[in-house]
Design a protein around this nucleic acid. Structure first.
Lengths: 149, 149
DNA sequence: ATGCAAGCTCAATCTAAGTTGAGGTCAAGC
DNA sequence: GCTTGACCTCAACTTAGATTGAGCTTGCAT
């Protein structure tokens, strides 16, 4: 395929798009937002590092965990700029993700417990129920809207 | 407080807002979207059933689980219209939520496992990694953007 | 050397989930 | 009977996360 240069560490935006499953427009958008950086050819075309594939994969995972692009950018900012991150770099950054996942599982587990407790009780208001619990407010940065339960 | 009529099954929008923690504007918005219905007084003011408190609580929980208002509406549509739902009605609808929670916990658990497996491996592309797995695409309707991983 | 896919910029548009504001009405308490 | 807070509608605005389109350029392949 055109612009495909296997063995080269610099890849075109379309290649990056194909390798990550993300739309070209989204990649440009991420770059604009500072989540990615690119070099330019003499003809003004973007060239990415191969390691940006992983960078984008990270973005996708983090999004699934409910992080906004701003937060994700902060995480990614701790990776080396311009050079390919090492395994150690990725380990550090992904351990945050692991914590995040654990938190979310916790929150879901609690929500399930409370749902079971609450449905079936006579009250109409979750505010009176165990389901409404101040403890959740802190943990409530997860998926969905930012409205506190 | 004005318009507060304890013992009455019809409540004003402000009361509903206070009891659920949801903004008045949001309640009107939900009604517009068909998630709630209301009666009107002679003076054109909305009156809700007390049971709408629980309806809204349900919306809030479902939102936390990453459901969009459209999906939530579909769930709520299975509740009786106009009359106060029974405990059994709520049990049925909330059992879907419980399944949903279980699915999400599952997905998160798998994601964590794969994250551990993948970070540290030599490949740059999660597409080649265990992290990219067709099985997830089905389950990927959870929180965050609707982009498939 | 030319065709055409892939790239570029920039502005507009989209969806979701609301909020905000203007301008006007309703109703409860003094 | 009037003030005041709660309520009404409708339109515009907001943020996040992109997508789409117009109009133009680059550069691989033949």
């Amino acid at each position: 395929m055109a612009h495909e240069n296997p063995g080269n560490h610099l890849i075109a935006i379309g290649t990056l798009a194909r390798r990550t499953g993300v739309a070209v427009s989204a990649i440009r958008f991420y770059e604009e937002k500072g989540l990615l950086q690119s070099l330019r050819t003499a003809g003004n075309q973007r060239r990415f590092l191969r390691s940006d594939i992983r960078r984008i994969s990270f973005i996708l995972i983090a999004q699934k965990l409910g992080l906004g692009l701003k937060e994700i950018e902060e995480h990614l900012a701790t990776l080396p700029q311009g050079r390919t991150p090492t395994v150690r770099d990725w380990e550090r950054i992904s351990s945050h993700m692991r914590e995040r996942i654990d938190e979310q599982i916790d929150l879901l587990t609690r929500t399930r417990k409370r749902l079971d407790q609450c449905i079936g009780c006579g009250c109409l208001s979750l505010a009176k129920c165990a389901l409404y619990n101040a403890g959740d407010k802190a943990a409530a940065k997860g998926p969905g809207p930012h409205m506190d339960l």
